[in-house]
Nucleic acid binder design. Structure first.
Length: 276
DNA sequence: ATGGTTGGAGGCCAA
């Protein structure tokens, strides 16, 4: 017993520890709270970024989330948008707005958790190419790109994750010809996504072999999930230092199969920190 | 065949 404990102490110092970071657009945390609590209990992520909470801050279910062992920070909005970060460790140095964008829409929440800088995003949907909302989306992404540059200067270990509302490549689309040039897939949106990667971020999902036709969002209509007619629009991007220790990234389709699901599935990335 | 479904407001809009 004593020997075993001694060995454990010796080896623990050299064992890597895994940091599990996830993102999930829940499409109303009110409706999805039981599913989120179950998912936290079974998957045990260290950090879970939520989008589309659709809750004002006083209504945030802080106590329910604390009961399963997580702290919560949030930037909420009634009815629309709303982002939150749930974590084992406390979150500090919060930012809730893109600099130089005076925007009442709650789509951004940055925090530092256990030394990792986390940028949680709910990128505007854009509605349709050429619409006012599409122009807002592209302007928003431009401001995001500028902000990311300043964040990367300050933080070596950084993740940008959330609902990007962009399918980066045709392989992220169930029917590329049908979606060609459409919102979520248009060239200006993909170029904006590429500009984030051009700053050194890696799409952690594509660091690993993945099944073909892997998607993170399926329309509620036309039995799209059953037919796997989806898009991969939820992403976990990692700075070079974090990408180098990324150990895996996967989409968890299980919650999408539940009754009253979100239209998005969670995405999970794991990082190995060697404390030796 | 330009459909269909969900959430939340509030008697349509956003996704």
């Amino acid at each position: 017993m004593l020997i075993g404990f001694s060995n454990l102490r010796q080896t623990t110092a050299r064992l890597p520890f895994m940091l599990k970071i996830a993102t999930w657009n829940v499409n109303s945390l009110n409706v999805r709270l039981p599913q989120v609590l179950d998912w936290l209990r079974t998957q045990q992520p260290d950090i879970l970024a939520l989008q589309e909470t659709k809750l004002s801050d006083p209504d945030f279910p802080t106590l329910d989330i604390a009961e399963v062992g997580y702290q919560a920070v949030f930037s909420g909005q009634k009815t629309y948008n709303g982002v939150a970060i749930l974590s084992r460790l406390p979150a500090h140095d919060l930012i809730t707005d893109l600099p130089a964008l005076d925007d009442p829409q709650r789509r951004v929440l940055a925090a530092t958790i256990g030394g990792v800088r986390v940028l949680n995003l709910y990128v505007p949907n854009g509605q349709a190419v050429g619409s006012d909302k599409y122009r807002y989306k592209l302007g928003w992404l431009s401001q995001l790109n500028a902000w990311l540059a300043t964040e990367l200067k300050q933080h070596n270990t950084l993740v940008v994750l959330g609902d990007f509302n962009i399918a980066p490549e045709d392989r992220d689309v169930h029917d590329p010809s049908a979606w060609a040039g459409q919102v979520l897939c248009s060239e200006p949106e993909r170029a904006a996504f590429q500009r984030l990667l051009d700053q050194g971020l890696k799409d952690t999902f594509r660091l690993f072999p993945q099944e073909e036709r892997s998607f993170s969002w399926w329309d509620y209509r036309a039995a799209a999930f059953r037919r796997n007619l989806g898009l991969r629009i939820d992403h976990i991007l990692a700075s070079p230092a974090l990408a180098a220790i990324c150990h895996g990234c996967r989409i968890d389709p299980a919650p999408r199969r539940l009754e009253r699901p979100s239209d998005h599935a969670p995405v999970v990335a794991e990082f190995n920190f060697d404390l030796g």
